Simulated scan of single mutants.
Amino acid sequence: MSATRLKQNTLSKRKIYAVDLFCGAGGLTHGLVKSGIDVKLGVDIDPACSYPYISNNQKVKFELKSVEELGAKDIKAGFRKNGINLLAGCAPCQTFSTYNRKADKDDDRWWLLLQFSRLVRESSPDLVTMENVPELIKQDVFNNFVQQLTEEGYFVSYKVVDCSEYGLPQHRKRLVLLASKFGSINLLEPGKFDITTLSVREAIGDLPPLTAGATHEEDSLHQSSSLSKKNLERIRASRPGGTWKDWGEHLVAECHKKGSGKGYRSVYGRMVWDDPAPTMTTQFFGFGNGRFGHPEQDRAISLREGAILQSFPREYKFVPPGEPVSIKTVGRLIGNAVPVKLGEIIGYSLRAHITEWEDDIKNRRK
């Protein structure tokens, strides 16, 4: 994965210290650290996050705890008295996602953003960042979150970005919010970086070939799900970028023959070598769950390939050595993650903001 660099790398040396809520496997933390931010604490309620978070971010403390149980004292333990402090996080997004057709306000995850807001109010960080699915922008709970930040004295900006424009080999659209007590703040535009747009081929094209259901002997994460006899026929009949409409009638699923299923053309699809991948979901390891078929080999993409398309380093660890890999658990961790590349862009944007703020103070003193 190519490095991300600002075209004019004249950033402030002043440290930003961070706490990462809903930290998951560490995608946001890893990106923030790469940008030069000192993350002190990651918090998540999922025990499966513990190993990948700790083993890949060894200088960061991990706390297995619900945000509902956290208070200002817990958050401030990760802050520094004379430093610039950041509260970051991505509340679970399935409730708001277009993939969730049954979301409603009875889902407890709906209100986790309000817990985030409470912790901002109680711990009063200098900076705040939040990443989530674009659909959240339409919800009252998001509008309330923004309003409360404004009432607490923060300058707030937010926008939906296509991560492929920032060098992620994936068309992943995300809502990114930044807030600061120091002044106006914005996510840096792609043109501020030396970025190379990456395709599926450039990201995973050199990985060893696999057959469906196999695991590479040197990397237990480079494994793919098994395929039924019918799905093996289907993927062999599929072309990159095509749909199930390319198949013979005997291969089309009964649900897709109905009027309600005719619009779901991207399921049972192959990726295209020379384009970015589609959005990685928590089900990316299943051929029938989206356009997750390998462009060339007769299988769904592997866990390692999914992680790389999420911009995790190739050596990123998700399971202790020698332990069995649960494809569903690791797939969930990877699909839920904030892409490392996006975390890095957010980190550089925050550091550039601090530089601008310091320059403004210097100019006022002249």
Rank of each mutant, 00 (worst) to 15 (best):
V156G: 15
S123T: 05
L168P: 00
F145A: 08
D126C: 02
Y166C: 06
F142G: 04
F116S: 07
H222Q: 03
L112T: 14
L112F: 15
L87T: 11
P208C: 03
I137G: 06
Y154D: 14
Y154E: 15
E152W: 08
L221T: 04
S117P: 00
Q94W: 10
K138Q: 08
R174L: 07
K173W: 01
R172P: 03
L178E: 04
A103P: 00
S220K: 04
Y158Q: 12
I185Q: 02
K173M: 03
M130N: 10
N132G: 13
A91E: 11
D140G: 08
A103V: 00
F116L: 08
P134R: 06
I195L: 14
P134N: 07
N82V: 07
I195S: 06
Q170P: 02
T211R: 07
L198C: 01
V146I: 15
A203R: 06
V176A: 01
I195V: 12
A214N: 03
E165I: 02
L114T: 14
I204Q: 10
L178Y: 07
E218N: 10
S117Q: 04
G183M: 10
V160S: 02
W111N: 13
P209K: 01
K181I: 11
K81R: 15
R174G: 08
T150K: 11
D107A: 06
E218L: 09
L136Y: 04
R118S: 11
D108H: 13
N186K: 14
F116Y: 14
R118L: 10
F145D: 06
D140S: 10
I84N: 03
L136I: 08
T150C: 05
E152I: 06
G213F: 06
G153L: 15
K173A: 02
S97L: 06
S220Y: 00
